[in-house]
Design a protein around this nucleic acid. Sequence first.
RNA 1: GCCACCGUAGCUCAGUGGUAGAGCACUCCCUUGGUAAGGGAGAGGUCAUGGGUUCAAGUCCCAUCGGUGGCUCCA
Length: 693
Amino acid sequence: MPRITLPDGSVREYPEPVSGAQIAASIGPGLAKAALGVKVDGQLHDLGHVIDRDARVSIVTEKSRDGQPDPDALYLLRHSAAHVMAEAIQKLKPGTQLVYGPPVENGFYYDMRFPDGASLSSDEFARVEEIMAQIIKANRPFCRYEMPVGEGMKKLEREGSRYKIDNAQKAIEAGSDRLSFYATGKPGEDWEDLCRGPHVPSTGRIGAFKVMSLASSYWHGDENSDRLTRVYGTAFANQKDLDHHLKMLDEARKRDHRVIGKQLRLISLNEDVGTGLVLWLPNGAIIRRELEEFLRKARSDRGFVWVNTPHIGKLNLYRTSGHFPYYADSQFPPLVDAEGLSRSLLAHGGGCGCADIANAMAAPEVDGFLLKPMNCPHHIKIYEADQHSYRDLPIRLAEFGTVYRYEQSGECHGMTRVRGFTQDDSHIFCTPEQLSREIDIDIELARMVLAEIGLNDYRVRVGLRDPQSSKYVGSAENWALAEKVCIEAARGIGVPYSIEPGEAAFYGPKIDFVAKDSIGREWQLGTVQVDYNLPERFGLNYIGADNEKHRPIMIHCAPFGSLERFIGILIEHFAGDFPLWLSPEQVRILTISEKFAEYAGRVHREIGAAGAFRVSLDDTPERLQAKIRKATEEKTPYMLIVGGKDAEAGTVSIRHRTEGDLGSVPLERFLKLLREEVETHGRATILDAVRPS
RNA sequence: GCCACCGUAGCUCAGUGGUAGAGCACUCCCUUGGUAAGGGAGAGGUCAUGGGUUCAAGUCCCAUCGGUGGCUCCA
């Protein structure tokens, strides 16, 4: 006699156990038709799932109440589409072994292993989609059936499905006493798969789908295990949602910082220089310099002092800090002189393969230099350059410090994942009493930076250590202390925060700012990290009021993270339309004909004389339309069009790169507005001031 | 590092075994025009590199280098 509570609070009683489909039907024929699954006390199930006790139930349909695609519906659709895709691929490539096919953020994937000699190419996606379309058109039901584990295992063994047997064993270990299978159609006749479910009622409910891409993966994510092929797809309830998704992907592609970075001549990646090494062209260097100057001032205002340190340091420095032993795989090999190298190779067996060199270098007596993977050890040595009293603290050191990390070749990506990059790094050394205030200063700085850039939608992530892992340095007490401080600081920020074990740096927990860009993608930007461990490893101290030595605490803070990555993200966020203060070119004067070159030249000189504006003059004999098109494509924020009328009246006609003609204003007024927009970082714009209402 | 795909003019790309192409950009000439491409001419390529198959290779095969999408990784 189950009493069913619906999302609107109403309660329905049923005389006997009832399925999700029956509940939907009892509410209305429209809902029965739209139903894709059922959620019982927060658990998603097949629509056919039978409820035999009191429960809170909602019927899952394609749209949630806010009109957006329902996440549960997408889960069901995509999980089901994964089955359909697997069936299609197995039909196309007989003998393919299935591994695991879950829904993921924007779709689903299925890991599979092709028989020897076979593979899937993206050229075959259309064929896979054809077969999928047939299966969907046939509208076969997803039929769940269960077996006791013994019988189920026997069935899997008969089928010789190594990976599925492993999945089943995992389920049994997790406490399952039955195995569930889903047939796409009739059990025993049609295609089926060991699967926990749930699924949509039938294949016909998969409204729109697409096979997206191929990747490789490892079984259990272990690189020494079997290599699998991961086929990605996506599915939506209808074509419109799929089209919208594809449009977003296309929009993201159009904003790709590698494409825009090339078009706007911001940066260059050159294979002769090396993978993951960014060349800043003059235009990109302007953006970088503006950001650096902005942060330089912001830091100086907050009591930071500027230092400079070299790009390399001795190996022992990084042995002490822990960087060298813990991150040996992801740094460039040490720099050792030839004599030292041959000495240590001899001492370690005499081989000179990569592994031999790596082993020889790891030996504790080897001396040499390392390209710095982080700036902190150098800054620590700057702290140590003087004896410190508690009266000196806090000491706030800052540097745009370039660091090098040997990312695996497949990891490098444009400006966002590189091998050499400049951190806007800082290290505060303070007393325990000062810690909370110093963290606040760093957090305020990081938030101010985001606000000035216009990234106002962000959340905070507190990265704690993974208690299972041994990669961290320092004592448990230090970690507990630092983690507590970070969590409290995050709580005080007033934006949503999450706590994520395993996301800490190796020396301490961190507070990361994760911002949403203009098309809704999230990026990890600034970071504030609390560190009790490096001061201890280096034996740092200050003399307290008690005339005793005490250990300072360090705070690492980088509001941008790295300039390469940050500017790469900004390129995508703005799609190249940088705010005026960051634009490589701010104003371009366009002559209507060469007859007005003299007036245009005067305007050019006056703007130049009025301040450090980046202004250029296009007085070529091209037609105006062509010049406008060129300047627009080059994303110049403001074009000033000057011809006979302007020359007579002493005005300029303003054109905005995206809003078009803004009419003409006297030159002095334009200059005043220009200065205002640059100085306010775009809070007051020329566009707003003169746009015809 | 692994899997799949790709590498042709400065850029974007066409060219599936038979004389290396287009558009844009560039240079020169004409055009002097009020809000997203005026017209004409010219110059520009070891088809990533090295091997192989073939009478013949940008095209087919192998290797190497580089790129892209993922995987793994990400201090």
